[in-house]
């Protein structure tokens, strides 16, 4: 069983069992795959270099839309224009954090620096956003309903399994946040 993240003198320490590390690595990779942009056949090399994507459109997948939301309130046209200018770098930043997190869970015990802890917290959060979308969590009441599901012996169907995974990742992120918040208190 994983241990809660704890602030130590050397950094934020964490311990994960092999099965948990494998699970997290797969989750990080699934979200990376979701975020990887499809390369259009006639990509303008200059536009690609500066991170502009003239083909970007509002994602049809609701999980992807939650990761890459519209940024401009009350104006869909402006939101699309803004997406074309910024979405590619947002995707790349998220993929970077997820890749870093996947590397960090390769070791059974890890002591995270402040920067690594922040990358890990962002990656865990993006994983939770995607899992929540797949589980249909749309309200606080939906989230509440899944809260008590914690018995792995009863993981008989996909939804129960996903809920168990969601609760595990939520627990892990919460312990990480407590350790990171303690770090802010010290400043």
């Amino acid at each position: 069983m994983a241990k809660a993240f704890k602030r130590t003198r050397r950094g934020i320490g964490g311990y994960l069992e092999p099965g948990e590390r494998e699970l997290l690595r797969r989750l990080f990779e699934d979200v990376i795959e979701l975020l990887e942009p499809e390369e259009p056949a006639h990509q303008d090399p200059l536009a690609a270099m500066v991170g502009v994507d003239g083909q970007a459109r509002v994602p049809e997948d609701s999980a992807l839309l939650r990761l890459l939301p519209n940024a401009v309130g009350n104006d869909d046209e402006e939101a699309l224009e803004f997406r074309r200018l910024t979405e590619r770098s947002l995707r790349e930043g998220k993929i970077g954090a997820l890749r870093a997190a996947a590397l960090l869970v390769e070791k059974r015990e890890a002591v995270l620096t402040g920067e690594q802890a922040q990358l890990m917290s962002r990656a865990l959060n993006d994983v939770r956003l995607v899992l929540a979308d797949r589980l249909g969590i749309e309200s606080d009441a939906d989230a509440e309903r899944l809260h008590g599901i914690d018995d792995w012996a009863k993981a008989d169907d996909v939804d129960t399994y996903l809920a168990l995974v969601y609760n595990f990742v939520s627990w892990l992120q919460e312990t990480l946040m407590q350790a990171m918040l303690e770090g802010l208190d010290d400043v």
Partner: peptide, 22 residues
């Protein structure tokens, strides 16, 4: 614009708009 993008990079759901809009 910069702040909204930062919120998105953290996975928070954020938008920007003119202050006088509802």
């Amino acid at each position: 614009e910069k702040d909204t993008l930062a919120m998105h990079s953290y996975g928070l759901w954020a938008t920007f708009q003119r202050a006088d809009q509802p």
